[in-house]
């Protein structure tokens, strides 16, 4: 975890997470999260080179559904939940293809 010790750039990560932070927040979180990251470095004590990672505590396999069409939502309910819509479509600010 050598590179980890450099700590994180809260501003950059917040961008990845699409959350605008105030400078006050950035400063506060930077300190708090550096503490947390320092704390979790205790995991380096452990040699887990040949330990299998656990993604599911109690794994099962091949949970499949038949290819059958079921109920969809009432269109009006979907539109009522949308903050902004036009002609049955959900309106968003113009997407400038990035």
């Amino acid at each position: 975890m050598s590179e980890v010790n450099q700590g994180m750039d809260v501003g950059y990560v917040a961008k990845l997470a699409c959350i605008d932070l105030t400078d006050k927040e950035k400063e506060l979180f930077q300190g708090q999260l550096d503490q947390v990251l320092h704390y979790v470095e205790q995991l380096n004590e452990l040699d887990v080179a040949d330990v299998e990672p656990t993604a599911h505590a109690i794994p099962v396999y091949n949970i499949l559904r038949k290819d059958e069409v079921g109920m969809s939502l009432d269109h009006a309910a979907v539109m009522n939940n949308a903050p902004s819509s036009i002609d049955g479509q959900i309106r968003v600010p113009k997407i400038i293809d990035q």
Partner: peptide, 22 residues
């Protein structure tokens, strides 16, 4: 397929917008 990958909504090209959603 008749239904979507991870839900049972129908896929139908040209259907009225946002009518095959869950």
């Amino acid at each position: 397929t008749n239904s979507k990958m991870f839900c049972s909504c129908k896929y139908e090209y040209g259907a009225a917008p946002n009518t095959h959603v869950c």
